[in-house]
Amino acid sequence: MSRVTKRFEKLKAEGRAGLITYVTAGDPNLDVSYEILKGLPAAGADLIELGMPFTDPMADGPSIQAAGQRALKAGISMDRTFAMVRRFRAETRDEETPILLMGYYNMIYQRGAQKFCADAKAAGVDGFIIVDLPPEEADQLKPHAEANGLDTVLLTAPTTDAKRLPAVLKFASGFVYFVSVLGITGTKSSTAEAIQGHVARLRTQTKLPIGVGFGIRTPDQAADVARVADAAVVGSAIVERVKAGLDDKGAPKPDLLPGVFSYIRALSEGVRSARRS
């Protein structure tokens, strides 16, 4: 059983939804980025999405675009991203928190899907969320991911109709990521009612856990999602807290880490409180 599946079973046993936090690898620099990664589980992250910066992030809004630029400027690379995960597993001894790499397919294609999956597994990665790899092209990655016990989390969108959904689910493992808005990351939010309807529709077709993301910015919004879905994904709003911790010259201020972690604790509290009342 993969770490992702185990984590969702544990959440189910606890009777609550999970918080999935997205951070960009290498943002704002390699050292601080590692400190953020290391502190995420204690701050309340149940699963971690680690963004692989790309020069041309077509599905991302301004916040995550800027984070990727900061990381690339700081010298992030795929080797260094894998090294971050390896160090996380070695230093924290955390063998339970799943880490999923999120990004664009060219990073995988350049290394070759087979080698990329082997390197990811060896580093302690648990799976992938690849924004520009729809089921139509996913057969390139799936066999290599499976051979290494890595989950492939596919995205579904409001535009994914009932006829198309089985094709998406065929390649999905770990959980299903529902993109709750038509749009790019971090720009607009959906309503609790609309999300509820989409999640109910998804549940009729899959037994996989369902995570909902895009546009969740506040503990209340995270709680709304946690009432109906199995996990709430927060990305842009966290990345904006990283940016808020930088001075005019882009150097990290002492309150960067506390600022990021206190925000994640608030989100986590929102998610944990959702089903108590």
Binding site: P134, L154, L155, P158, T159, D161, R164, L182
Partner: peptide
């Protein structure tokens, strides 16, 4: 091929 976000794929 078609390397695009799922949101666009059906369209």
């Amino acid at each position: 091929g078609r390397y695009v976000a799922e949101t666009l794929m059906p369209l």
